[in-house]
């Protein structure tokens, strides 16, 4: 069986610093896979390698069995790989509606249509509207992103990734920095993702990880330290010592 996402001996070196060290990871289709590890373990670097922001020093990346190691970032999106960023990467002057229309339009390959006005694109507008509803951004529809409260921006960050209709979604600490009272909103959205979408989640919030994930990989110092079910990882003494104990 082909995995949704797979890496083979993936490494990334910055000079003498090894940020990702020989990582071979398999994520099953439809899995809820969490990546955990102490700060500086190379989680975000790994995501950047997977999505093509960084080029690996060695190793391979496979998306649904196909080698995408050399595929440029924007083509990986078309192949069904989408992500959110740990620090919001949004379009400050766009309204959520515009941002979502952009993402949907690109997915539909309409991004190079220069003559048809946006306002005539009813299918895209309607889909954006339904996403706005789903992400509880309806009220913020026409407010420039930079003026939105952080929690709403975070929701938009996830909505943008979803708008690409990914088959594999990488979430880089989706709840990071979200105030407590808005947190449940973000987490609710993450939990409600369709079951056939494979989700790789990086998260520090262990409650979220344990309630959300079915498999967990532990990264330490750039390398894959341990992998297993929630049960195995949460009771693993070594993981506790390295990660949980340290973080608590």
């Amino acid at each position: 069986m082909t995995h949704a996402l797979e890496t083979r001996n993936l490494s990334k070196r910055f000079g003498s610093l090894v940020a990702t060290n020989d990582v071979s990871l398999s994520v099953a289709k439809g899995a809820r896979h969490a990546l955990i590890g102490p700060n500086g373990a190379g989680k975000t670097t790994l995501i950047n390698l997977l999505t093509g922001v960084l080029t690996p020093s060695s190793g391979q990346i496979l998306l649904e069995g196909e080698d995408i190691t050399a595929t440029p970032a924007h083509h990986r999106v078309g192949r069904g790989l989408s992500r959110t960023f740990q620090i919001n990467q949004l379009f400050a002057d766009f309204t959520p509606l515009e941002a979502l229309m952009l993402a949907i339009g690109e997915r539909e390959g309409q991004g190079s249509m220069a003559w048809k006005p946006l306002s005539k694109n009813h299918a895209i507008i309607d889909e954006a509207a339904s996403l706005l509803d789903r992400f509880r951004l309806t009220d913020a529809l026409s407010t420039p992103t930079k003026l939105l409260p952080y929690g709403k921006q975070r929701l938009l960050e996830i909505a943008l990734a979803i708008a690409a209709r990914p088959r594999v979604l990488l979430l880089d600490e989706p709840a990071a920095g979200v105030p407590e009272e808005e947190r449940h909103e973000v987490l609710g959205i993450v939990r409600a993702l369709p079951a056939d979408v494979t989700v790789v989640l990086i998260e520090h919030d262990m409650d979220l990880v344990f309630s959300f994930a079915d498999r967990i990989s532990v990264l330490v110092a750039g390398g894959l330290f341990k992998e297993g079910t929630v049960e195995e990882i949460s009771h693993d003494p070594q993981v506790k010592a390295i990660y949980l104990g340290e973080d608590a």
Binding site: P72, S82, R107, L160, A161
Partner: peptide, 22 residues
């Protein structure tokens, strides 16, 4: 005011995210 125009503004505002939108 077309999808193309929107994508240009997106590239200006945030090239990183633009790539991740495809």
């Amino acid at each position: 005011h077309s999808p193309y125009g929107l994508s240009l503004k997106a590239l200006k505002l945030n090239p990183r995210r633009s790539a991740m939108i495809g």
